[in-house]
Structures are given as structure tokens and as C-alpha cells.
Design a protein around this nucleic acid. Structure first.
Lengths: 221, 221
DNA sequence: ATTATTCAGATTATCGATAATGATAATCGA
DNA sequence: TCGATTATCATTATCGATAATCTGAATAAT
């Protein structure tokens, strides 16, 4: 009993997240092969389960599947990253504009909570948790815009930018506080002011790009 | 010998294309369930093979997979279709700008050839072939821009718009000649003129939206 | 020397069967 | 009657084994 509903990690999900984590941390460099059978052995599951995870990673743009010639970690190029950034800005700015109107106190609390966790993760030096929480916050806000079909595109762009950033430069440890960085956004959401929220979001993303991916900055007129 | 490399539809690919076709023709309406086992029986393949096809359809945004609760044909909403259209325009306009510089005579011939096939398909009343060839032409041009990672996003947007259009209104048979409709684009590509090509592409897509999806038109400032 | 051919290995693709899950209907005890 | 529990059913998730395909190296033919 106790229908605890810690449902829910299917095994495929576990593999998906584990491999995703490795890729995003750069533990498996771009272009490296991902072999279904050996991953299956490593995670104690069948090849088919790994295959499902790889298909989902492909959906996120993190791997390239090339039929009988194997699966590799996706590669990134600056020209592509620029377009990804443009799409991301367009989506998040328009998204928060919609979201601002329907954002509830509960939603705000929810995001505050994530920001707290993010602070702690940063204090603890858990780089991966930090970036995951950041994505979670942005996706949570975007979700409130009710543009479900766009979520996967947004996620793809965000992940591509992450991959590009980590692939092209070393990690910087100096970062401003997440709470501080997201404050204007939170204020605009609390005020339910769409224009203010849109501007805050645009500024925020632009700042992040400036800090983490200078090569992209110049392309964003 | 003759390594003809009609390589080759894997069985999963066959199922993928067959189901994709049905969805795009509206033979399976939005929201309908797609059951792995019964599709497997129908196509004489195993459930796992169907599953792979469904995962790929999800990547294209044509189906929603909901874990143990089944897979359904994707639904569309006007707010989402608007954003998809914006992304599509942004991508194709920027893409053809790049493509114009590297477009070869051979590429041009290739597209001309597709336009011929498209004329014939239209004469023969093969609506699906027409739309597939149109997508193929646009993707071929975009591919020349060397933005590979963006191709799946563009495809997704295009397919979403198709689904939205077919789901929300009846088929119109009156259409202008494909060759005519794409002429300004072809001329600009032949002249290798990026700005002209970009403008031609923007006009073309706008016209298509005006003709096929009026609800989207007003949202494109 | 260059081009075909063959062959071994590595890897993905497919299969058929079984387990796990979620939704709903049936049952039972207060 | 009502709420909670259990059984049933449709469907997806997973497995282990086998088939199909690709790559590259060794070999043969021109």
C-alpha cells in the first residue's frame, strides 16, 4: 500500500537521464560513439531499452543516430548555435508574455523554491544540478504560456546552447547568484506585467549569452 | 555489384512513413490512438519496430506519447501554429540567405526536377505527393545553408503547420502552379543573390500561409 | 598500382514472449 | 449506500536471442 507513486522511472528513463547527464557535463565528448549493447550491459538492461533512451536523446538533439553506423554525441557549430539562440529568445520572450497573465502565486512559490535549490547546488559546487535547475525554471515559466508543442523545440535550443558552450570553452566558476539573476523576471511575473516580463527575460538571456557564449553575442543584433 | 545503395528502408522506416502519411492526409484524425501491437499486426512486424517508428513520429511532433497510457495523433492549436510559423519564416529566410551563396547549378537542376514531379503529382491529384515534394524542395534549399542541427526544428514547424491546416479546414483544390510559386526563389538562387532570395522566400511563405491558413496570417505582423 | 571481392567484427534492427503499468469495472465490508 | 479494495483488461515496457547491415582490412584480379 502507500500508493507512493514514486512511480515512474521507467528503466529507459533512467538510462536517458544518465546518458544525458554525461553528455551535458562533457564526460562524453562530442562525436564519441554510444553503443547500444555496451550501454545495456553497463545499465543492466536490454539493448532495446537503451535504444529508446537514444531515440529520446536524439529528439533533444544531443545525439546523432546514423542507422547501422552507430550513434554519436552531437556536434555543435557556431552558426547553428546562433540560430538556436535566436529561436530561444523569440520563444521565451513571447512565452513569458503569455505566462505573465496566468502566473499564480503558487507558480511563483514553486519557482522561488527552485531558486533556493539552485543557490544550494551552486554553493555545493554541483554544476550539473545548477544547469538542470536553471532549465527547469525556464521551462516552468514557459509551460505557463500554454504552448506545449513548442516546449520540445525550446528545450532543444537550450540544450544545444549548453552543449556549444561547454564544448567550446572551459568552465567558469564565477557566476552571479541565480536569485539575483532572475529577480527582474520574478518581479515582473509577480506584477503580472507582460511587457515588463518580456523585457526582463530578453535581458536575462542576453546577459547569460554574454557571460557564457561571447561568440554568440555579436550575432544577436 | 552495382552498389546501388537503394539501401534501404528498414522495416521501422516503412512503418514510420506509412503512419506519417496517414496522419498528414488526415486519415487518422488528431487525438486518435495509435496502438503498438495492432500496428505491428497490420504491418507484419513486431511491437518494438512500431515503437521505434512512433518515437520518430514524436520527434517530428506528429504524435504524443504518454507512457503507459498510449500514443495519440498530435493535436494543434492556433497559438502554437503561429509560433511555429514565425520560427519557420525566421529559419528559412536566414537559411536561404546562406544557401544562395553556395547554391550550385546541380542543386538548381535538382530542385527544377522536383518542381516537375510536383506539377505531375498535382495534375494526377496526388495531394500527399504534392505536399511531400514541397517539403522536400524547401528542405533541400535549407540544407544548402549548412545548418544541419536546425533541420529537424524546421521540419517540425512545417509538419505542425501542415497538421494545423488540414485539421482546421477542408482541402482546397485550387492552387497555383508550384513552378510559378517558386519562380522568384529560383531566380534569386540562380543569381546567387542572398537578399533577393531572402525576400522571395519570405513572400512565398507568407503567400502560402495566406492561402492555406488565414488564421495565422493576422498574427504575422 | 589500382580496382574488385571476400570475409570477419562490430553494431544496429527485428522478433516473440513476458513483465509492469494505469484505467476501469467488480467486489466487499462498514 | 458508499468508500475502499481487488480483479480485469488494454497497452506499453523490457528482455534475450537472432538477423541484417555497415566498415575496414586482407586478398585477388586487372
Amino acid at each position: 500500500m502507500y500508493n507512493f507513486k514514486f512511480s515512474t522511472l521507467t528503466k529507459g528513463s533512467t538510462v536517458f537521464h544518465a546518458v544525458r547527464r554525461r553528455i551535458l557535463l562533457g564526460e562524453i565528448p562530442s562525436g564519441s560513439p554510444l553503443v547500444e549493447q555496451s550501454l545495456g550491459r553497463e545499465f543492466n538492461c536490454s539493448q532495446g531499452t537503451v535504444r529508446e533512451a537514444l531515440l529520446r536523446l536524439q529528439e533533444d538533439g544531443l545525439v546523432e543516430r546514423r542507422g547501422y553506423r552507430g550513434t554519436i554525441v552531437a556536434r555543435t557549430y557556431v552558426t547553428e548555435a546562433i540560430q538556436m539562440a535566436k529561436i530561444r529568445i523569440g520563444l521565451e520572450v513571447e512565452g513569458i508574455r503569455q505566462a505573465a497573465l496566468s502566473f499564480t502565486t503558487k507558480d511563483l512559490e514553486n519557482v522561488e523554491n527552485m531558486l533556493d535549490k539552485m543557490e544550494k547546488a551552486m554553493a555545493g559546487g554541483d554544476q550539473y544540478a545548477v544547469s538542470e535547475l536553471d532549465r527547469l525554471i525556464h521551462m516552468t515559466i514557459f509551460r505557463a504560456s500554454n504552448l506545449k508543442a513548442l516546449e520540445s523545440i525550446l528545450m532543444r535550443c537550450t540544450l544545444h546552447m549548453h552543449l556549444f558552450t561547454f564544448g567550446s570553452q572551459e568552465t567558469k566558476d564565477l557566476r552571479m547568484s541565480p536569485t539575483e539573476a532572475h529577480k527582474p523576471i520574478m518581479q515582473a511575473l509577480a506584477a503580472q506585467n507582460p511587457d515588463q516580463a518580456a523585457e526582463a527575460m530578453r535581458d536575462h538571456i542576453t546577459q547569460v549569452i554574454e557571460l557564457w557564449a561571447p561568440p554568440l553575442k555579436s550575432a544577436l543584433d
